[in-house]
Design a protein around this nucleic acid. Structure first.
Lengths: 94, 94
DNA sequence: CTTATGCATGAGCTGTTATTCATATGTTCA
DNA sequence: TGAACATATGAATAACAGCTCATGCATAAG
């Protein structure tokens, strides 16, 4: 059994994935980087709500921002996400 | 982008993994099947708390019970869990 | 049958979390 | 400088989740 702290961190990571809004954001970013307002309109949610969730994703080092003028574009910052989602999809598709 | 419902189910799955108690239970079951009281004493928690969490894991079809006399032994019921955990561990170990 | 043991379950409490609303920060352009 | 736009942030609210406590149910032993 790994160290207590490792298991706690692992739970924290999965907790970030445990929200459908964040799942949708990540899935959108699989395609291409997007700015906050585009994510908001794509998911039909307020800019504020998206911004709050992006903050969570950023703190978990799953996405990273890039400013371009007034817009801030977010992109995925981890190559393991896709593998995790793939395995998760396999489970729920049984 | 997959169907709304699929993404919701995926979030629900990760939500189950998003608790350190359940992570510990699953990790314990990687080794071998265990009865409720043994899991409780291993994690130093009450039998009730473990039973509640096992219910969550069972509903997500991640573990399955097997009765043997008065004891009920739980074991993992999904071959994807290990792969998901492995990828998750890779992320937090950066 | 009675008692003891292992597990499940429901209610209640408490801490957490996702969203909204209002507002602040930062950038561009006139 | 000032207006307009994009994003971030803090407070507030409502829903949710995990634990404890009390208790019910099933099985085994006497």
């Amino acid at each position: 059994m790994p160290a207590e702290e490792k298991l706690y961190d692992l739970a924290e990571l999965f907790k970030v994935f445990g929200d459908s809004t964040r799942i949708k954001i990540i899935w959108a970013l699989f395609e291409e980087e997007m700015c906050v307002c585009d994510i908001a309109s794509l998911l039909n949610m307020t800019q504020s709500a998206i911004s709050h969730q992006l903050r969570v994703l950023k703190q978990a080092r799953l996405v990273k921002p890039r400013r371009e003028g007034k817009n801030i574009f977010y992109s995925l910052d981890d190559e393991h996400i896709e593998a995790i989602f793939y395995q998760g999809m396999k489970h729920i598709s049984e």
